Amino acid sequence: MSYVRNKPSISSEAAAVLIAAARAKADELGVAMSIAVVDESGDLKAFDRMDGSVHVSIQLAQDKAFTAIGFGLSSDGWYDFIKDDGPLALGAPAAIDRLVTFGGGYPVVLDGAIVGGIGVSGGHYSQDMTVAQAGLAALGD
């Protein structure tokens, strides 16, 4: 029996690819954003705060990425998951630290494993989603 478990984790290189592709999309949209990449445990791996991004976007981007790795569910997917369940709708956001229930956070899945998450904040959540998805597309995810 082994008491050690190896967990796949996003590399620094992959995190840089996510950041660069997401930033390029944000530039294309003309919206200053914060872009965070976390590892499989939710710890910050890479971060970029574009000039002019709003201050609150710093924490929100990180929390969206953290939300995405928690259950392997996008941050906007959380809204759909809890909206019709009263106890979850009231309890989950209050009880789960750093939970964000609107778009912009996605798990990063490589070789079938959640290796990290990307979170984007600074625009409307639909813009945040577009920018995060552009980052994922650069990895072929």
Rank of each mutant, 00 (worst) to 15 (best):
A95L: 14
M129Q: 14
A89Q: 13
I114Q: 05
G104E: 00
F47P: 09
S53V: 05
M50F: 08
V120Q: 05
A138V: 10
A32K: 10
D97R: 15
V17L: 08
V100Q: 07
A95H: 07
D141A: 09
A22M: 08
G104A: 11
E13G: 05
Q59E: 15
A46I: 05
H124I: 10
A132H: 01
D51P: 12
G70Q: 14
D63K: 15
A22P: 11
P107K: 11
G91K: 10
K45N: 04
V109P: 04
H124A: 13
I58C: 01
G91P: 07
E40M: 00
A21P: 09
D48A: 12
S53K: 06
V31S: 03
D111V: 01
R49F: 01
G103K: 05
D84T: 14
V31P: 01
R5F: 12
E13D: 11
K83E: 12
M33I: 07
G42M: 08
S74D: 14
A16C: 02
A36L: 07
D128I: 06
G105D: 12
H124D: 13
A32P: 14
A46L: 02
L99G: 09
L139M: 08
Y106D: 10
E40N: 13
S57C: 05
A14C: 03
G104V: 11
S11T: 15
G70S: 14
G117V: 12
L60G: 00
V108P: 05
K25W: 00
K83G: 00
G30A: 08
K83Y: 03
T67R: 04
I82N: 01
P93L: 07
F47V: 04
A94D: 10
G119V: 04
G91Q: 13
G103E: 02
S121H: 05
A89F: 15
V31D: 03
G116M: 04
P107M: 07
I10G: 03
Q133F: 02
A26E: 02
I118D: 03
L29T: 04
K25G: 03
Y3I: 10
F66W: 15
A16M: 13
N6I: 13
G135V: 11
T130C: 02
G112F: 02
V131E: 02
E40P: 12
G42P: 11
L139W: 06
G91N: 11
S9F: 03
A15V: 00
V4T: 11
G105W: 12
H124Y: 07
A137N: 14
S12G: 11
V31K: 14
G119P: 12
K7L: 10
V37Y: 01
V37N: 06
D85Y: 12
G140T: 13
F71G: 13
A132S: 09
Y125E: 04
L18W: 11
P107D: 06
L44G: 03
T130F: 00
D51H: 09
S53P: 04
P8L: 06
G123T: 07
L29I: 03
V56G: 10
Y79V: 05
Y106N: 14
K7M: 10
L90I: 08
D76G: 13
F81P: 00
D141M: 13
V108Q: 07
K45D: 01
A21T: 10
A89P: 01
H124S: 08
W78V: 14
Y125S: 14
V54C: 09
A24W: 01
A68Y: 07
D141N: 14
A15Y: 00
S2W: 02
